[in-house]
């Protein structure tokens, strides 16, 4: 990226903020309906440590859920490529999990799991794990036929073929899935916090949003939402950077 393309989104963002603030002031909308960026900033600065603490709590759930999703997703995808039985057994369940609306089953999970933190992680994993799983499964199956023949010609077993060919070939697909799942993991964590409400850990960003809503502290509610968006952007950028780092030796020909 050139300096100009790097600068463009920043300039656009600043412009949007100015337009927003200008419109809010011109139309005299009350802050409890639509707060301007200035009011939101002030609401954040009133008690930054509370909001940042909540952000840290939500991010912890997000990261643990993302790591669990990666481990479970890759393990299931590998099992599917290693054995036809596992493929037949796993495929339908993965789809069932994917189409299950998390808000519908979150209350049950919270009751079943007991520990509030673990319950949030389980909910976020259910939301986040599918892109990693399905991308990795596609990547494991996308090894070139000629290379598979070469492995066969040299008497390679299933495990060697997975370790030395299928897994490295799946890495770009896995990383693309991880990037999607990173955002979903955050969404899953927040949704689960919403459902858990004050019965849960009562410290995440969703709880701050709910709390501010009850007290009609709308600028504070927006401040929490802005933090959430920034966290999503940061996660996405971090995972994109990770992919660039890990795929540098693959050259330019691999999917990103």
């Amino acid at each position: 990226m050139t300096a100009q393309t790097r600068l463009a989104p920043v300039l656009f963002f600043v412009l949007m903020l100015l337009v927003w603030e200008g419109l809010v002031r011109l139309t005299n909308v009350p802050a409890y309906l639509v707060p301007g960026p200035w009011a939101i900033g002030q609401a954040f600065l009133q008690a930054p440590s509370v909001l940042l603490g909540s952000l840290a709590s939500t991010l912890l759930v997000t990261f643990v859920a993302l790591i669990v999703s990666a481990l479970v997703g890759v393990a299931l995808a590998v099992a599917m490529v290693a054995s036809k039985w596992a493929r037949a057994a796993i495929q339908p369940w993965a789809v069932v999990l994917q189409v299950t609306p998390i808000v519908a089953i979150a209350p049950l999970i919270i009751v079943w799991v007991g520990d509030p933190f673990a319950a949030l992680v389980v909910c976020a994993v259910i939301v986040a794990f599918f892109p990693i799983f399905s991308n990795t499964a596609i990547g494991l199956g996308a090894a070139p036929a000629d290379l598979l023949d070469l492995f066969r010609l040299n008497g390679a077993g299933t495990w060697d073929t997975i370790r030395l060919l299928r897994l490295p070939a799946a890495l770009p697909y896995f990383l693309a899935g991880l990037r999607v799942s990173g955002g979903l993991s955050l969404v899953g964590a927040v949704v689960a916090e919403f459902v858990a409400g004050s019965g849960g850990v009562a410290s995440g960003l969703a709880y701050r949003i709910l709390e501010a809503g009850y007290r009609l502290q709308i600028p504070r509610m927006f401040a929490a939402l802005v933090l959430l968006s920034l966290a999503g952007l940061a996660i996405n950028a971090a995972l994109a950077g990770l992919a660039r780092l890990l795929l540098a030796r693959y050259g330019d020909t691999t999917p990103r």
Binding site: D146, L147, L171, R249, Y250, G251
Partner: peptide, 8 residues
């Protein structure tokens, strides 16, 4: 026909 090397 193609070199079919491991790209990594």
């Amino acid at each position: 026909q193609d070199a079919t090397l491991l790209p990594w």
